[in-house]
Every structure is written in C-alpha cells, then in structure tokens.
Amino acid sequence: MVEGSAIGIIPNPMSGRDIRRIISQASVFPNTEKSSMVLRILRTVGTLGVERVLLSTDTFGVAAGVQREIKRLSGERSTAHVRWPKVEFLTLERPTGTAADTTAYAQMMVGHCSAAVVLLGGDGTMRAAVPGLGDTPLLGLSTGTNNAFPVMIEATVAGMALGMVATRAAPAPTTHAKLLHVEVTRGNGSVRHEVALVDVCVNTLSVLGSRALWKTSSLRELYCTFAEPHAIGLTSFAGRLRPTGRYDPRGVVVRLVDPFCATHSVLAPIAPGLLESVGVLSSTELLLNVPHRVELDRGTIALDGERELEFGPDDAVTVTLAQDGPRVIDVPTVLAASAVAWPST
C-alpha cells in the first residue's frame, strides 16, 4: 500500500438516458453494470497499492450497489493478490440532480488530494467535470449514448492505469486536451462563457427542447477539437471530411446546410444505428487561439451534442479553440510505459 495515494470515481447514474435511445438502437448501460465497473476498478487499484478511493453517491443505486458488494466480498477469504482500498462515500450538501453535481464532486475530489478522477458517462459527463478538475488528470470510461471523448475499455485495465498513476509507478500525463470556448455577449452587455471538450454545433432550432441533436437539417456551423473518421456523433461528419487527431495542434470547422438544398453531402453516424446526411458548404482548419464569430443570427448552441445556449440577433457569439483542457490519462500509453523488459535468452 502506498501511503497517501488516492483516486476519485464519479459514475453518472443518468448517462445513456437521452432521447436518442428512442430514435435509434443505442446500447443501454444499466446502473448495475456501472456498479460492477466501479467494483472492478476498486479491486484493481487496491491490488496495485492505492490507499483510498473517493466515490460519489447518488439516489439511483450505483453507490449503494457498490457498498453492498464491498460488505459481502470483504467477508470472503482474501488472497495475497487482492486488497480492497478504503472507500470514502462522498455526499453533496445540496444535490441538484443536474450536471452541476458532477462539477461539485470533481471539485470535492480534487480538494481531497486525489491523484486522478475517473468518470463513467458520455461526452456531457466529461464536460461537466472539467470546471472542477483543475490540473488533476481525468480518465473517461464510456457509459453514455455518444462517446467521442471517453474511451471504451475494460474497467479492470483502466484501473491498472489509474493505480499506476496514483502510486507513481507510471508518470501522470502532462499534455492538456483541447477545449472549445464559447462566449455569448448579450445585447445588455452581460457575457456567458461555456466550454466543450469535443464539439460546438450552431443550429437553427430556437429553443433548447430535449437538448440532444439528431435532426441534421437544422445544423449550420460545427466546431470540433478533434475529428476521427471512426467516431459517432456530430464529429463523425468532420471526421469524414478532414480527419484531425486528439493531440494535433488544430481543430476543424465545418459550414453546413440543409442536405435537401446542398450540392455536396456527407453520410455519417449521428447516433448508434442512425446514419444521416448533412449538407456541406466548406470545411477548414480551426487554428488555436483564434476567435471565430458565429454567422447565424439566431438559434441554439449545442455543447458536446446537447443544446445549452439560446441566442438572438442582439447577441454576439464567438468560438475559440485552446489547448487548456484537462490532462487526460491515456491507458495504452501508461501500460506500455510500465512494461517490464525481460533479458533475451
């Protein structure tokens, strides 16, 4: 056991529950599986010597399921290769049942000196944690609908990387992820600032509604921190046009139009099982630290796939790409760095 070592775990019990499950064949991630993932992480980091784990609580049974299983397994005969860390169940004084709870839990875990925070959720969960993380590394595991930012990897393997970083058996990441900064200056002079880890999409819909985007006819401007051809969600369109890596010093901006009025269109998966066409006017590089003025005069702005902001003719909206996001733990890189070199025979 490495004295003082600690990690935080935030499983979002609401991830993977948006309207896109009704219109497509997206996989369902039940909360019982989220509890199982947390338990696999706990068992793994404990075996690697992590002293403490800070776990967020909820009213949907994820944390309760973990607590019941720990009590049951702790009574079983242990082996030399299994050690459970001390688990501290954190609670919020005033939970809201919104993304603000994820931000608050991240802040709380950073205050308790965790070496890293792992989140179970989709792109929205990752974005909600960013304001609370500071310089603490993040590892995102996919349990949402669209998972462009979090990785789909076995929780046991993720736990190995977390344990190695927390016990300093492997170095923590030093490179910061890219962020999109959205600034809305209202006609009355007030300013609202928001960030996105993956994409910002400007669309013609006038109200937030169900928040999730799946109708491509309303999309007009798409800004992406990275664009992978194998991704799902809005970035899949940019990935088909201008592939851009997560660590490339640039992003992508795509000008869009209703596909029924377009000369050129691209077909891509906007949600699991849902291929849609989008009309394309242009695609260009999005340079770091260069503000882009949104051309549409009214509509809503989606951050990482969900509509969050409304704006009108009296408002000025800018989008700026910067490399000031969270430090992200890359599991394959951490495990490769810790590989043992055996002498040749």
Rank of each mutant, 00 (worst) to 15 (best):
P343A: 07
L119T: 15
L48E: 04
E276R: 13
G245D: 07
C224R: 01
G132I: 08
G299L: 13
G187T: 00
C261E: 04
T47C: 13
T145V: 00
V110H: 07
T345G: 10
V317Y: 07
P85Y: 10
S114W: 03
G61C: 09
A100D: 15
A262C: 01
V38N: 06
A104C: 02
D101I: 14
T59M: 15
I232E: 00
N146T: 09
T79C: 07
E183L: 07
R68S: 05
N147P: 00
I22L: 06
H264Y: 06
R255V: 03
W84T: 04
T300P: 09
P95F: 15
M164V: 02
T32Y: 09
T57Y: 05
A148M: 00
T244K: 03
L208V: 15
V266R: 10
H112Y: 06
D18T: 08
S206K: 08
G16L: 10
D330Y: 03
S5Q: 11
Y105W: 04
L287Y: 11
C201R: 06
A337W: 08
H264M: 03
A128E: 07
I10H: 12
A115P: 06
T263F: 05
V2L: 11
G305Y: 08
E76P: 00
L274W: 04
A6V: 08
V110F: 06
V328T: 10
G97E: 15
N203W: 10
A104Q: 15
R168I: 07
I329Y: 09
V82K: 05
T136P: 04
A339Q: 13
L162Y: 06
V319H: 14
A129Y: 12
M14G: 02
V66F: 09
A106Q: 02
P269Y: 00
R246P: 08
H264P: 00
G132N: 12
H292T: 01
H264R: 09
D18M: 04
T79H: 07
D324C: 06
V331H: 14
V66Y: 11
E93Y: 06
L55C: 08
L180D: 13
L303H: 09
G132F: 11
V50R: 14
I329E: 08
T345M: 11
L90E: 15
Y223A: 05
D324H: 05
L281A: 08
L335A: 12
L241S: 01
A212Y: 04
G279L: 02
V2G: 03
